[in-house]
Write a protein that binds this DNA or RNA. Structure first.
Length: 200
DNA sequence: AAGTAACC
DNA sequence: CAGG
């Protein structure tokens, strides 16, 4: 376990043991059953290559009209509860007095990526975003609070946890690519990223 | 606008 | 051609 700081991003390499990673995969199965993955449309046309769902009171959503949090899966069913094992990671690393209201579940299949963006659909940026990587390696790109600022990249591996707080809370970030089937955690391959947020 | 593509 |  080593901790790195890259432009305010607190990166806990190897935070989750392989056993803890496997336990997380197990508790996430019923979440996916209750709330199947979908690929949101984005304003201006186009569709994300990442497939996503969520747990908690709110899930992030996007369509032609914009980005927002919604209180139920697009199917109309309530989002499932955030598993206790996930809440425990937030409690250890967030330094927050509030529980997360959203556990966004992003699945990167072969070739999936996510463009540079800010997490700014939440009401209070004083709470950090905690990001958990499981499965295949992903290349995280980190910038500043303006699109013009230089960026730098770091490979995230299964079990790494990143805390985006303080100056990093509104920093641009994205995932340029994954190394498909670089990990054996997920039998079908791919990368799962969980992000915990206080929304309201 | 978390999309793509053009362009440098 | 890869990266920004």
């Amino acid at each position: 376990m080593t901790r790195l700081n890259l432009r305010g991003f607190e990166i806990h390499k190897g935070f989750l043991s392989p056993e803890r990673q496997r336990a997380l995969v197990q508790v996430l199965r019923p979440v996916l059953q209750a709330a199947p993955l979908f690929s949101p449309d984005v304003p201006g046309g186009g569709q994300m290559s990442v497939r996503m769902t969520a747990a908690g009171g709110y899930g992030w959503f996007s369509d032609k009209s914009g980005y927002r949090y919604i209180d139920a899966h697009p199917s109309g069913r309530a989002w499932p509860a955030i598993p206790a094992e996930v809440l425990g990671i937030w409690e250890t690393l967030s330094g927050s007095d509030r529980a997360p209201e959203c556990c966004l579940f992003n699945y990167y299949g072969e070739g999936a990526k996510m463009g540079l963006h800010q997490d700014k659909d939440e009401a209070d940026f004083s709470y950090p975003v905690v990001s958990i990587s499981l499965g295949d390696d992903g290349l995280l790109r980190i910038g500043g609070t303006s699109r013009r600022e230089k960026t730098e990249s770091i490979w995230l591996n299964s079990g790494d946890v990143v805390v985006m707080g303080g100056e990093a809370r509104l920093a641009y970030h994205g995932v340029d690519r994954i190394r498909f089937k670089s990990s054996r955690l997920l039998p079908k391959g791919g990368r799962v990223n969980l992000t915990l947020r206080v929304v309201t």
